[in-house]
Simulated assay, not measured.
Amino acid sequence: MSSALLPKPQMRRLLARRMKFHLFGAFFVSLGCAALYKFGVAEPRKRAYAEFYKNYDPMKDFEAMRAAGVFESAPPK
């Protein structure tokens, strides 16, 4: 008599239903992480490199390293 009061547990397609929920959850979490990385790390890094190379003079940098004695094949002047 008490068994009629309790509902029967869902045994069929239980794994498929839970996997669908977790698959969608994992997809949206990974999409959010990718967007955070792109806008939080990659874009600021691209802007920093662009700003650095906008005023970069490689010959001036070479002469400074040459004067410091960094290169063995180019003696300091």
Rank of each mutant, 00 (worst) to 15 (best):
S3E: 15
K60A: 15
E63G: 00
V70C: 00
F21Y: 12
D61S: 05
G32E: 01
F27Q: 05
F62E: 01
G25I: 02
R18L: 15
P44K: 05
R12Q: 12
R66E: 01
R13N: 14
E63I: 02
A50S: 07
A74K: 08
L6C: 03
A34H: 06
R18W: 13
R47P: 00
R17V: 07
K54A: 15
A16D: 10
A35D: 09
L31V: 08
F71H: 04
F39W: 15
L5C: 08
C33F: 11
A35M: 14
K77E: 11
F28K: 05
F62C: 00
H22E: 12
Q10K: 15
P75F: 03
P58R: 04
N55P: 02
G69S: 06
P75E: 06
V29R: 08
K38Q: 14
P75S: 05
N55Y: 09
Q10V: 15
D61Q: 04
A67I: 07
R13W: 08
A34T: 07
A50G: 03
L31T: 03
G40F: 03
R13V: 02
A48G: 02
M59K: 10
C33E: 05
M59P: 01
D61V: 03
F52L: 13
G40W: 02
F52D: 07
F24P: 00
K60W: 02
V70Q: 01
A67G: 12
P7T: 02
A42H: 06
L15S: 11
R13C: 06
S3I: 14
A4F: 14
G40C: 02
H22S: 11
R47T: 07
F62H: 01
K46L: 12
L23W: 09
V70R: 03
M1D: 10
G32V: 03
S3M: 15
A74Q: 09
S30T: 13
A26I: 07
G69Q: 02
K38V: 12
F24V: 14
P44N: 04
G25L: 12
